[in-house]
Design a protein around this nucleic acid. Structure first.
Length: 263
DNA sequence: ATGGCCGGCGCAGCCGGA
């Protein structure tokens, strides 16, 4: 089973890019971030025609997440628990039936947090604390669980081509990185880093020729619970998609899991 | 050459992004 995450930076601007990629790579499940659409405005029909069920959690203008799945979506929940006053659409979770049982998937769009020293950064850290609590509760279920999406955190110096350029940025603050490490410390595996020590990026800014110069960062992550990590068979980043016409500034990150029953 | 983008909203130019 192939499960992917992709910050598509606007579903309406990226629909053709998305359907082309879906037809080429045929993932079973896709978590999307930054759909920048309300639920009613999400172009579900062309995606459903490719065999996907669609669950959205959108808002007007920006943010917004979605899950696409070839398998029926069960128990879809929208929003990250812990703050009823938080109206930003950044988290969606679902359960999918697979041969070995249930696979739980949480798709997230973690706040950017820039500029530091403002309420935006405070919001980022508060959101990460809510995520830690929620993730802890989910891990207690001891089931295969993937927590994936645009984390807006550069975990380590190797995860940026030029880390010194990010020293004043919310994505690379000690507090942001520590909160990400705390998540891992709960028992998650950072799937990409577990599979390779290489420098691999998932985002290249549109500005300043970042893509041709390969001035990238790794901020899109797939975290696996122990029960999911135990079934991990492959990890990849679809880097080539950044070179397509009208690309998102992020590229898809995916994992493959063996979901067959064990004796 | 020392600056260079993009999407949404809505129809100009600002907001938000990373």
């Amino acid at each position: 089973m192939k499960v992917a995450t992709w910050n598509i930076n606007g579903i309406k601007a990226r629909l053709e890019t998305l359907t082309t990629w879906l037809e080429e790579t045929r993932p079973d499940v896709v978590c999307l971030q930054e759909i920048k659409s309300v639920d009613e405005g999400f172009p579900a029909a062309p995606i459903e025609r490719l065999g996907y069920h669609v669950a959205t959690h959108g808002q007007k203008g920006f943010n917004g997440v979605a899950i696409l799945s070839k398998h029926r979506l069960e128990d879809v929940s929208r929003g990250l628990p812990g703050d009823p006053d938080d109206l930003q659409a950044r988290y969606v979770e679902t359960v999918i039936s697979v041969p070995c049982g249930a696979l739980r998937i949480g798709g997230l769009y973690l706040p950017n947090g820039n500029p530091i020293g403002t309420d935006k950064f405070t919001y980022k850290l508060a959101w990460m604390e809510r995520l830690r609590r929620h993730a802890r509760d989910r891990l207690a279920l001891e089931e295969p669980f993937l927590l994936m999406g645009d984390f807006n955190v550069i975990p380590m110096p190797i995860d940026a081509k030029t880390p010194e350029n990010w020293l004043g940025d919310a994505l690379y603050q000690p507090e942001s990185r520590a909160a990400f490490r705390e998540l891992l410390g709960l028992g998650f595996t950072d799937c990409l880093r577990a599979s390779s020590d290489a420098q691999i990026f998932t985002f290249w800014d549109y500005q300043a020729g970042c893509w041709p110069k390969n001035e990238g960062i790794r901020i899109d992550h797939v975290l696996a619970s122990p029960q999911a990590a135990d079934r991990l068979t492959a990890v990849g980043v679809d880097r080539r998609v950044r070179g397509w016409d009208k690309p998102s500034d992020h590229v898809p990150v995916w994992v493959e899991l063996d979901v067959e029953p064990r004796r």
